[in-house]
Design a protein around this nucleic acid. Sequence first.
DNA 1: CCCAGACGTTCCAACTCTGACATGTCGAAA
DNA 2: TTTCGACATGTCAGAGTTGGAACGTCTGGG
Lengths: 180, 180
Amino acid sequence: MSRVECQTEDMSLRHAVLGLLEECPMSGYDLLKRFEQAMSNVWAATQSQLYGELGKLETGGLIRVHAEGPRGRKEYEITEAGRAELRHWLVDVEPNRVTRNESLLRVYFLGAVGPERAREYLEYLGETGRRRSGRLEDLETSIDWGDDDASVYGRLVLEWGKRFSAMQREWAEWAVKQVE
Amino acid sequence: MSRVECQTEDMSLRHAVLGLLEECPMSGYDLLKRFEQAMSNVWAATQSQLYGELGKLETGGLIRVHAEGPRGRKEYEITEAGRAELRHWLVDVEPNRVTRNESLLRVYFLGAVGPERAREYLEYLGETGRRRSGRLEDLETSIDWGDDDASVYGRLVLEWGKRFSAMQREWAEWAVKQVE
DNA sequence: CCCAGACGTTCCAACTCTGACATGTCGAAA
DNA sequence: TTTCGACATGTCAGAGTTGGAACGTCTGGG
């Protein structure tokens, strides 16, 4: 069996882990930091979810323990089966994730709280966009970019985030004017 | 007890339902159609989730059956407690929903499949943006907009979607060039 | 020497969400 | 009159997700 059976065809977290391990071997702790930093703008994962997934992936033979370190540290590496599963997901499984945007959901119902509150909220969204822009710029300078694939595609993702933030800020400014 | 206890402070679906019922009384079936149409760009919900939530909301006293129709149809209306909960959520609870973007997650790992596949995928994302733009424009013309709150804020949400789609399309075109 | 803080893993209960299956009614057209 | 499609709701197992508690180890500064 070259890959773990998956009923839902979803499980993006699993593939996020495989993708990161494809880059280089890491422990759960290292992965967690990656999810909190660069990945936080794209896919969130908690510690309990992560360690659980690592266990399942190891059982399924998609990753294996590559080295052990102090404090029970276990460094995982991706296996050939894991690489196959990652490529399968990237190529054959079409993106499916349903849209869910709580911030925007609230905008729908702003009528329930009156124009002043609505305006406040829209300004808050604009501010959120600005702050996000700032964080992404900090992130950009803090990473030392190379010519490897991870850098090339990482830059694409970062650029997406910057454009998204800018869009949100501009939209919020426009929206405030509409409400007035 | 003026509102249902909520441990997670999340439960956006609950508030989406309250928000729609604040506009006007509806049955589960009606709500489902709303979620499939206009709301689909903002918050997804399945039928089972929806009927389950309606049951919980009724038990909690946030909504009540307003009228019954043929085929067991139950039209719900929001109660005063429900309105209070909706306003509480809009004003006091800060948006918390974690970011999760499967499409973008894939971009991170495109190095694993080679530049041709990567290019294909980025072009697919651009196409997705274009299609989404088209659907939103269809939606815009199919709705008869008024001067009520629902129309005003609905337009804001629609505009967000249009800007988002345009951004995604432009980014994808740029990204394809970067990969080459 | 001690201890705070970073490192590092494991487990759990409760909740959300998905994708079915199940059940039945009404209206209109063939 | 039958039958089909829209209307309408209810329930369930299984997977994903959250937030926290619990536990132990190493390192450096006071």
